[in-house]
Amino acid sequence: MTASIPPIAIFGDTVRVQAHSEPRRAALNVEALYRRYGDLVLGRCRTLLRNEADAQEVCQEVFLRLHRYRSSFRGDAAPSTYLFRIATTASLNRLRYRRRHPEDPVEDFPMVAAQDSLLDATEIKDLLDRVLAEADSGTVDALIYHFVDGMTYAEVGEILGVTGGAVRKRIGVFRKRLAQSPPAWLDEVES
């Protein structure tokens, strides 16, 4: 019988275990992940939530959740990709919660957001207002990644686990709905 203990590869500040040539499970040091990627998650939350207290809270929730479910973490995506996605999902869920509870309003502070998006804070709010009430969560995600972050259809498909063609179709439906009164940012992003 031959030895079959696989190599252990280190990426970033944490340790990933590799099985044969394919990454599998990760042994997570969540504090180390926070120190390395916390700015990405916090920035994401700020951009979508436009409220500093909410952003800080959701950011921490992302890492607490990562810790809680660390044993099921799959190491087959870069942590930055994984965290970017769950920060997006968590922020959108917080926004949906806000919509369901209008009696508990929060104040917007758009200036706290890093200006690393393709849309400014007002345009992002306009996009979210247009889609959160109507579109399914997968479509909302696709629209955010494409219009706010400037991902190509293929990049959006990769992060959502669908084909680029499926993303194009979802966004195409959204475009048709906007055809009557297209916002200025629509052409700006697509130009």
């Binding site: 990405l40 870069a78 930055s80 990709t81 970017f84 690393d116 998006s117 393709l118 990644y145 706010v148 972050d149 400037g150 991902m151 190509t152 259809y153 990049e155 992060i159 992003v189 697509e190 130009s191």
Partner: peptide, 13 residues
Amino acid sequence: MSGHLSTLKLHQL
């Protein structure tokens, strides 16, 4: 497409 780098790609850079 916008022709710009995505937000995530900037982070990864």
